[in-house]
Design a binder for these strands. Sequence first.
DNA 1: CCCGTGACGACAT
DNA 2: TATGTCGCCACGG
Length: 110
Amino acid sequence: MKDDNFFERVYEVARLIPPGRVTSYGAIAAYLGTKGSSRMVGYAMQASGKAIPPVPAHRVVNRQGLLTAKFHFGGNLMAELLESEGIKVIDDKVQDFKNLFWDPAVELAI
DNA sequence: CCCGTGACGACAT
DNA sequence: TATGTCGCCACGG
């Protein structure tokens, strides 16, 4: 999309997230080199709704594993999607988040 | 060009 | 440990 280098970069990383895994906005931001723009990652995700192919934004959560984006998805849609992939979501937060955490700075750095 | 906003994160209290 | 506040960068108006 245009020169949305930053946004597109976020989409690319988000799409690389394996099923049943989750990552954090800060992790993606750090991987892009803009650690301080963690908010922008989420902001980009909002626009990801029109991105093609669609970005699994539901696999992206905050550093606490809390489904902050769920509020934007509407209802428990995000939780349903995560559980559908085998991720346990309780009280709007990912269980074993630390174990399911997918760090692009590490996984993609191999 | 300046101001406000935001799906976060880290630090301070 | 929990709550509060500030900072961060990119984009829209």
